[in-house]
């Protein structure tokens, strides 16, 4: 009995600690929304900080939307992200399947090469890629953001792991029916790859949407800026002056992602965990 009430007590204490720390983590978001709705926050920030603005108004949000650059950047980010997600998920499904079920020369060597790409950061490739796309006249377009995503070692690895778990007997049956490799892939294995494809879409979406350094290098034209680029240029221009506007802008840029996350949280958390468990 004593032990039981002891357990109950520590359970409650843990719950309270978790709750407090959770609120602490959420504080920047809560404050962001609150200041965003504060009409007076552009001259000086409200001090002492208050949760409910003195004069609630959607003034800041009105300006953010009227400006139009945010919506444009959303469209740009949308185009870039969908294209690169489609490209890298497609290419990785093909390659992952081949590395799992294929029988061909140099398979091991080629796979090790793929794993090596995981070790190569963006920085040493930045300048040559810049001059490469420059020589094709493709700077200030979305191509430099989309095309290089075709190779993603992590996705190929995850995909191979998944296909390794599917039985090879499925292939043999189809082979006896005389189906070619591509037909076997598209009719037998691809329909089974839903779960891993979903994971790959989620991961590549997050990577692509948040990509910053490479777009910053490639896109000078403001019209083409993606969401993170627009945010950064706004922030560097205004510093900590226009508080209300900045927070409204941050809110509008974060909310859709948060809503998407809340809907898909189970799958997103699973995907992240999967990409991490492989570290074993």
């Amino acid at each position: 009995m004593n032990q039981k009430s002891m357990d109950k007590l520590t359970g409650t204490v843990k719950f309270v600690i978790l709750l407090i720390f959770g609120v602490l983590l959420m504080m920047p978001f809560i404050w962001m929304v609150s200041v965003g709705f504060d009409r007076t926050a552009n001259i000086t920030m409200p001090f002492p900080p208050r949760l409910i603005p003195e004069e609630i108004s959607s003034f800041n949000f009105g300006i953010v939307f009227e400006n139009g650059r945010l919506i444009q950047s959303y469209i740009n980010s949308g185009i870039v992200t969908t294209s690169s997600v489609a490209l890298q998920v497609g290419a990785s499904l093909l390659a992952g399947y081949a590395f799992s079920k294929g029988r061909f020369k140099y398979k091991r060597l080629l796979f090790i090469l793929v794993l090596c790409t995981l070790m190569i950061p963006m920085e040493p490739r930045l300048i040559p890629l810049y001059t490469l796309f420059n020589s094709f006249g493709l700077l200030n377009s979305f191509w430099p953001l989309i095309l290089p995503t075709v190779i993603n070692g992590m996705l190929i690895f995850l995909c191979k792991q998944f296909f390794d778990q599917l039985p090879t007997t499925l292939r043999e049956a189809a082979q006896i029916d005389g189906a070619g490799e591509f037909r076997i892939f598209f009719t037998v294995y691809l329909p089974l790859a839903g779960p891993i494809a979903a994971t790959m879409v989620i991961l590549s979406f997050i990577w692509s949407w948040n990509d910053f350094m490479w777009p910053l290098v490639v896109l000078n034209d403001q019209e083409l800026h993606t969401v993170p680029l627009y945010l950064a240029s706004f922030s560097l221009e205004n510093g900590t002056s226009l508080g209300g506007l900045t927070m409204a802008l941050a809110t509008v840029s974060i909310i859709p992602i948060v809503v998407l996350y809340l809907f898909l949280q189970r799958y997103i958390i699973q995907s992240i965990a999967l990409s991490g468990v492989k570290g074993e």
Partner: peptide
Amino acid sequence: LPNVTSIVAAAMIFQF
């Protein structure tokens, strides 16, 4: 939740 928000937006908020 903080991890899904882009670090760029997060930096913007943290400035304030």
